[in-house]
Design a protein around this nucleic acid. Sequence first.
DNA 1: AAATGTGAATGTATTCACAGCT
DNA 2: AGCTGTGAATACATTCACATTT
Lengths: 279, 279
Amino acid sequence: MTAHGADVQDGDGQAEADSRIESKQSVEVPAARERARAIPEAAVARLAVYLRALSGLADQDVTTVSSDELAAAAGVNSAKLRKDLSYIGSYGTRGVGYEVSVLIGQIERTLGLTRKHSVAVVGIGNLGHALANYGGFPSRGFPVSALFDLDPDLVGVPVGGIPVSHIDDIVEVCTDREVTIGVIATPAQGAQEVCDRLVAGGVTCILNFAPVVLQVPEDVEVRKVDLAVEMQILSFHVARRQQEAAAQSDVDGADLGPPGTGEQVPGEVESANRMVERL
Amino acid sequence: MTAHGADVQDGDGQAEADSRIESKQSVEVPAARERARAIPEAAVARLAVYLRALSGLADQDVTTVSSDELAAAAGVNSAKLRKDLSYIGSYGTRGVGYEVSVLIGQIERTLGLTRKHSVAVVGIGNLGHALANYGGFPSRGFPVSALFDLDPDLVGVPVGGIPVSHIDDIVEVCTDREVTIGVIATPAQGAQEVCDRLVAGGVTCILNFAPVVLQVPEDVEVRKVDLAVEMQILSFHVARRQQEAAAQSDVDGADLGPPGTGEQVPGEVESANRMVERL
DNA sequence: AAATGTGAATGTATTCACAGCT
DNA sequence: AGCTGTGAATACATTCACATTT
């Protein structure tokens, strides 16, 4: 990630909790429609990006697209794009390209977007509000169906149309509303406890904004978005660039003013870094 | 990715915009203190995670830690941790472990956290508010020194102590306040324009929450955090798990009720997915 | 005895480059 | 002629396993 990734993550990227799946041991399964496992994690992340690019094209009534065009729109190179698409099947036409609508359908199928995934957001602070009001969630496929906080003043208050429940009711409410994805937007302290309750409530996928490493059973998928980490990665790149610039001016001319780019005043030094606050 | 990346970005992860750095061509540089380049992107992301774990230990007045302990706290295995740390130097003591304060100092140095990085947030919607109020930013090293929006009703209003400026003034204000990191929290449409202005204002690192692939000069580092992508990756894992469960129950007994875990009501199908709204 | 630091081995991801289809 | 789909080649990342140091 870079991109990470910031992912985020993780990406590097972002996805740290790399749940290595056991199974596969005995029966060597009939492999009926068993291609899902074959898709590399990194490719899955990009499929989502391609999907967005394709939706944009569909909106402009583009019906056909080549790997070069789509790759440009998604910000990757075309070989990678073609390989990624090859993991989900062969839906292109040689000499022509891909039909936009077909590709959209196939990626949606692969990503499991042909069913709804109820989302619960825990921690209705600044970020929780932002998430609860996020138009992109419910617009297609990810209806926010529960909100939780521990503040009694918040409980019962509707945010983005959904009344906030108390975190003591996580298990019950999540089971009830068949929540599959939990979003943790609490401060660090509460996060593990919240996570445990979500899992107890049947949630198998968690998006974690809290700056903690969550402990979960191996059948639960966690993705982490960590602002502090993202900022620090960027900081590293600033520092690297400065070193480069310095090294470079060492090499050529040692004394002459530096040419245009890269100038940066050092600024005062300060130690210790703890970005463990709440969002 | 988680990270992530990534991944983050990519993230995995998060880190998509993987700017491959040229240079290295001619002089075979004296390599004075040129170890910065050697650190793999994935390791950089984890250093930030170790740093947080170490800060936690320091708060508990732990002075020494072994790779096993620190690895557990950071959620990675100890071999990986040791290799990551080896990229920044040898600061451990065989038979003993690492001194917490030394490691914190060295990681901070490596990540460039010994100087301040002024941050500008563009787009003061729900997310922008959350970011502007984020205690973790200014607490150490990342002072938010500028906010921007295009809404005239917002301009001049202080958010988290900083008055909002108009996006027309990005170049001027960023140059003036020596902003090094720009955070884009605008809707998709405005993002590229905003990005261009940030770059013109001397910003070399960008954290992008808008669902677009930004075009930037190669000396600008972009990390992307994409909610929609994260959700869709989780959706993929839900789908995969279901397939697994289905395949598994095919294998053993075909007709018997499934054992405890993994039950999930299919829910109705719906097509098309476009999560391009604003946060 | 305990734990680091690191070459070598393995595993994963990206890129190349071209055969094969339309 | 153009563009996909994919093996083979390369690059990158993780893990192993052990010599080395305290």
